[in-house]
Write a protein that binds this DNA or RNA. Structure first.
Lengths: 93, 93
DNA sequence: GTAAATTTGTCAATAACCGTCAAGACAACT
DNA sequence: AGTTGTCTTGACGGTTATTGACAAATTTAC
Protein backbone atom coordinates (compact mmCIF):
# COMPACT_ATOMS: atom_id res chain seq x y z
CA UNK A 1 0.00 0.00 0.00
CA UNK A 2 2.43 2.68 1.10
CA UNK A 3 5.20 0.55 -0.32
CA UNK A 4 3.53 0.27 -3.67
CA UNK A 5 2.96 4.01 -3.75
CA UNK A 6 6.58 4.68 -3.01
CA UNK A 7 7.71 2.28 -5.67
CA UNK A 8 5.56 4.13 -8.17
CA UNK A 9 6.94 7.45 -7.08
CA UNK A 10 10.47 6.16 -7.24
CA UNK A 11 10.02 4.84 -10.75
CA UNK A 12 8.34 8.00 -11.92
CA UNK A 13 11.39 9.87 -10.75
CA UNK A 14 13.72 7.35 -12.41
CA UNK A 15 15.41 6.29 -9.26
CA UNK A 16 16.84 2.84 -8.89
CA UNK A 17 16.27 0.99 -5.68
CA UNK A 18 19.91 1.32 -4.80
CA UNK A 19 19.93 5.00 -5.61
CA UNK A 20 17.03 5.81 -3.33
CA UNK A 21 18.42 3.47 -0.72
CA UNK A 22 21.75 5.27 -0.90
CA UNK A 23 20.12 8.65 -0.44
CA UNK A 24 18.26 7.27 2.54
CA UNK A 25 21.41 5.63 3.82
CA UNK A 26 19.84 2.22 4.19
CA UNK A 27 20.45 -1.16 2.62
CA UNK A 28 19.02 -1.81 -0.83
CA UNK A 29 17.59 -5.14 0.25
CA UNK A 30 15.79 -3.40 3.08
CA UNK A 31 14.17 -0.92 0.79
CA UNK A 32 13.16 -3.69 -1.56
CA UNK A 33 11.41 -5.45 1.27
CA UNK A 34 9.80 -2.25 2.45
CA UNK A 35 8.36 -1.44 -0.94
CA UNK A 36 6.90 -4.92 -1.16
CA UNK A 37 5.46 -4.72 2.33
CA UNK A 38 7.69 -7.36 3.81
CA UNK A 39 9.09 -4.88 6.27
CA UNK A 40 7.70 -1.56 7.38
CA UNK A 41 8.83 2.01 6.98
CA UNK A 42 9.66 4.22 9.88
CA UNK A 43 7.94 7.56 9.95
CA UNK A 44 11.24 9.35 9.42
CA UNK A 45 11.90 7.28 6.33
CA UNK A 46 8.61 8.32 4.82
CA UNK A 47 9.45 11.95 5.45
CA UNK A 48 12.86 11.47 3.92
CA UNK A 49 11.38 9.85 0.85
CA UNK A 50 8.86 12.64 0.40
CA UNK A 51 11.71 15.11 0.31
CA UNK A 52 13.90 13.12 -2.01
CA UNK A 53 11.13 12.35 -4.48
CA UNK A 54 9.39 15.70 -4.18
CA UNK A 55 6.20 14.02 -3.10
CA UNK A 56 3.32 15.11 -0.93
CA UNK A 57 4.50 14.32 2.58
CA UNK A 58 1.04 14.48 4.12
CA UNK A 59 -0.35 12.04 1.61
CA UNK A 60 2.47 9.60 2.17
CA UNK A 61 2.18 9.80 5.92
CA UNK A 62 -1.53 9.17 5.63
CA UNK A 63 -0.93 6.06 3.58
CA UNK A 64 1.77 4.96 5.96
CA UNK A 65 -0.56 5.29 8.93
CA UNK A 66 -3.38 3.54 7.10
CA UNK A 67 -0.99 0.69 6.45
CA UNK A 68 -0.07 0.34 10.08
CA UNK A 69 -3.72 0.28 11.05
CA UNK A 70 -4.51 -2.25 8.39
CA UNK A 71 -1.78 -4.60 9.56
CA UNK A 72 -3.48 -4.71 12.93
CA UNK A 73 -7.09 -5.04 11.92
CA UNK A 74 -6.84 -7.36 8.97
CA UNK A 75 -8.44 -10.67 9.72
CA UNK A 76 -10.37 -9.38 12.71
CA UNK A 77 -14.11 -9.48 12.68
CA UNK A 78 -14.94 -6.33 14.56
CA UNK A 79 -12.99 -3.93 12.38
CA UNK A 80 -15.76 -1.60 11.35
CA UNK A 81 -17.09 -1.13 14.84
CA UNK A 82 -13.61 -0.69 16.22
CA UNK A 83 -12.78 1.97 13.63
CA UNK A 84 -15.95 3.82 14.54
CA UNK A 85 -15.05 3.77 18.20
CA UNK A 86 -11.62 5.16 17.47
CA UNK A 87 -13.08 7.95 15.36
CA UNK A 88 -15.36 9.00 18.15
CA UNK A 89 -12.59 8.86 20.68
CA UNK A 90 -10.41 11.32 18.81
CA UNK A 91 -9.98 14.73 20.38
CA UNK A 92 -11.49 17.77 18.69
CA UNK A 93 -13.06 16.03 15.72
CA UNK B 1 -10.61 1.68 27.49
CA UNK B 2 -10.85 -2.10 27.26
CA UNK B 3 -9.10 -2.29 30.60
CA UNK B 4 -11.55 0.03 32.25
CA UNK B 5 -14.44 -1.93 30.81
CA UNK B 6 -13.05 -5.14 32.16
CA UNK B 7 -12.48 -3.64 35.55
CA UNK B 8 -16.11 -2.57 35.63
CA UNK B 9 -17.27 -6.02 34.59
CA UNK B 10 -15.06 -7.65 37.16
CA UNK B 11 -16.38 -5.48 39.95
CA UNK B 12 -19.96 -5.96 38.85
CA UNK B 13 -19.38 -9.67 39.19
CA UNK B 14 -17.69 -9.23 42.56
CA UNK B 15 -14.40 -10.66 41.50
CA UNK B 16 -11.20 -9.56 43.13
CA UNK B 17 -8.20 -8.91 40.92
CA UNK B 18 -6.47 -11.91 42.34
CA UNK B 19 -9.51 -14.09 41.80
CA UNK B 20 -9.88 -13.22 38.16
CA UNK B 21 -6.13 -13.46 37.71
CA UNK B 22 -6.20 -16.91 39.25
CA UNK B 23 -8.95 -18.08 36.92
CA UNK B 24 -6.96 -16.74 34.01
CA UNK B 25 -3.79 -18.27 35.36
CA UNK B 26 -1.80 -15.07 35.19
CA UNK B 27 -0.07 -12.88 37.73
CA UNK B 28 -2.26 -10.50 39.74
CA UNK B 29 0.15 -7.64 39.16
CA UNK B 30 -0.08 -8.25 35.44
CA UNK B 31 -3.84 -8.06 35.44
CA UNK B 32 -3.68 -4.89 37.47
CA UNK B 33 -1.47 -3.31 34.85
CA UNK B 34 -3.66 -4.56 32.06
CA UNK B 35 -6.80 -3.09 33.54
CA UNK B 36 -5.06 0.23 33.92
CA UNK B 37 -3.73 0.18 30.39
CA UNK B 38 -0.11 -0.17 31.36
CA UNK B 39 0.15 -3.45 29.54
CA UNK B 40 -2.08 -4.94 26.91
CA UNK B 41 -4.36 -7.93 26.76
CA UNK B 42 -3.90 -10.77 24.39
CA UNK B 43 -6.90 -11.73 22.32
CA UNK B 44 -7.15 -15.06 24.10
CA UNK B 45 -7.24 -13.30 27.44
CA UNK B 46 -10.19 -11.19 26.35
CA UNK B 47 -12.04 -14.29 25.25
CA UNK B 48 -11.24 -15.98 28.53
CA UNK B 49 -12.51 -13.01 30.50
CA UNK B 50 -15.72 -12.87 28.51
CA UNK B 51 -16.39 -16.45 29.46
CA UNK B 52 -15.49 -16.07 33.11
CA UNK B 53 -17.49 -12.89 33.58
CA UNK B 54 -20.38 -13.88 31.33
CA UNK B 55 -19.82 -10.86 29.20
CA UNK B 56 -20.45 -10.12 25.54
CA UNK B 57 -17.37 -11.46 23.82
CA UNK B 58 -17.94 -9.55 20.60
CA UNK B 59 -18.25 -6.28 22.43
CA UNK B 60 -15.09 -6.87 24.39
CA UNK B 61 -13.12 -7.88 21.32
CA UNK B 62 -14.33 -4.75 19.59
CA UNK B 63 -13.12 -2.58 22.42
CA UNK B 64 -9.87 -4.49 22.54
CA UNK B 65 -9.29 -3.91 18.84
CA UNK B 66 -10.25 -0.26 19.10
CA UNK B 67 -7.68 0.06 21.84
CA UNK B 68 -4.94 -1.40 19.71
CA UNK B 69 -5.79 0.93 16.88
CA UNK B 70 -5.87 3.90 19.17
CA UNK B 71 -2.44 3.15 20.54
CA UNK B 72 -1.09 3.45 17.03
CA UNK B 73 -2.91 6.50 15.79
CA UNK B 74 -2.88 8.68 18.84
CA UNK B 75 -0.74 11.73 18.30
CA UNK B 76 -0.68 11.37 14.55
CA UNK B 77 -2.11 14.09 12.39
CA UNK B 78 -3.58 12.09 9.55
CA UNK B 79 -5.76 9.83 11.66
CA UNK B 80 -9.12 10.61 10.14
CA UNK B 81 -7.97 10.20 6.59
CA UNK B 82 -6.09 7.04 7.45
CA UNK B 83 -9.14 5.52 9.12
CA UNK B 84 -11.20 6.30 6.04
CA UNK B 85 -8.67 4.61 3.81
CA UNK B 86 -8.70 1.50 5.95
CA UNK B 87 -12.49 1.37 5.89
CA UNK B 88 -12.53 1.47 2.14
CA UNK B 89 -9.86 -1.14 1.88
CA UNK B 90 -11.79 -3.69 3.85
CA UNK B 91 -13.14 -6.67 1.94
CA UNK B 92 -16.89 -7.00 1.44
CA UNK B 93 -17.92 -3.80 3.17
C1' DG C 1 -3.31 -0.64 63.47
C1' DT C 2 -3.75 -4.85 60.92
C1' DA C 3 -4.80 -7.61 57.15
C1' DA C 4 -6.14 -7.98 52.56
C1' DA C 5 -6.01 -6.03 47.99
C1' DT C 6 -3.86 -3.53 44.69
C1' DT C 7 -0.07 -1.06 42.66
C1' DT C 8 4.75 -0.23 41.64
C1' DG C 9 9.34 -1.50 40.46
C1' DT C 10 12.82 -4.62 38.95
C1' DC C 11 14.98 -8.14 36.32
C1' DA C 12 15.56 -12.01 33.38
C1' DA C 13 13.42 -14.40 29.44
C1' DT C 14 11.24 -14.17 25.25
C1' DA C 15 9.77 -12.28 21.10
C1' DA C 16 9.71 -8.74 17.47
C1' DC C 17 12.37 -5.83 14.77
C1' DC C 18 16.40 -4.07 12.12
C1' DG C 19 20.95 -3.78 9.74
C1' DT C 20 24.16 -6.27 7.11
C1' DC C 21 25.70 -9.32 3.98
C1' DA C 22 25.96 -13.09 0.48
C1' DA C 23 23.82 -15.63 -2.77
C1' DG C 24 20.11 -16.21 -6.13
C1' DA C 25 16.77 -14.92 -9.81
C1' DC C 26 15.65 -12.41 -13.73
C1' DA C 27 15.94 -9.58 -17.80
C1' DA C 28 18.70 -7.06 -21.36
C1' DC C 29 22.30 -7.05 -24.17
C1' DT C 30 26.36 -8.91 -26.92
C1' DA D 1 25.96 -19.01 -23.78
C1' DG D 2 28.10 -15.45 -21.04
C1' DT D 3 28.12 -10.86 -18.92
C1' DT D 4 26.13 -7.04 -16.64
C1' DG D 5 22.87 -4.58 -13.91
C1' DT D 6 18.82 -4.66 -10.98
C1' DC D 7 16.13 -6.54 -7.72
C1' DT D 8 14.88 -10.35 -4.43
C1' DT D 9 15.62 -13.89 -1.01
C1' DG D 10 17.40 -15.95 2.96
C1' DA D 11 20.28 -16.15 6.85
C1' DC D 12 22.73 -14.34 10.79
C1' DG D 13 23.62 -11.09 14.92
C1' DG D 14 22.45 -7.28 17.33
C1' DT D 15 19.14 -4.25 19.25
C1' DT D 16 14.89 -3.01 21.13
C1' DA D 17 10.26 -3.94 22.90
C1' DT D 18 7.18 -6.97 25.38
C1' DT D 19 6.19 -10.36 28.88
C1' DG D 20 6.41 -13.31 33.14
C1' DA D 21 7.62 -13.64 37.66
C1' DC D 22 8.51 -11.90 41.96
C1' DA D 23 9.23 -8.67 45.99
C1' DA D 24 8.30 -4.45 48.02
C1' DA D 25 5.40 -0.50 48.68
C1' DT D 26 1.03 1.56 48.84
C1' DT D 27 -3.82 1.84 49.39
C1' DT D 28 -8.23 0.20 51.15
C1' DA D 29 -11.45 -1.88 54.42
C1' DC D 30 -12.26 -3.25 58.74
Amino acid sequence: MIGQKIRELREENDFLLRQLAAKMDIDTAQLSKMERGERSFKKEEIIMIAEILNANQEELLTLWLADKIYQIVKGEEQVIEALKIVEHKLPKV
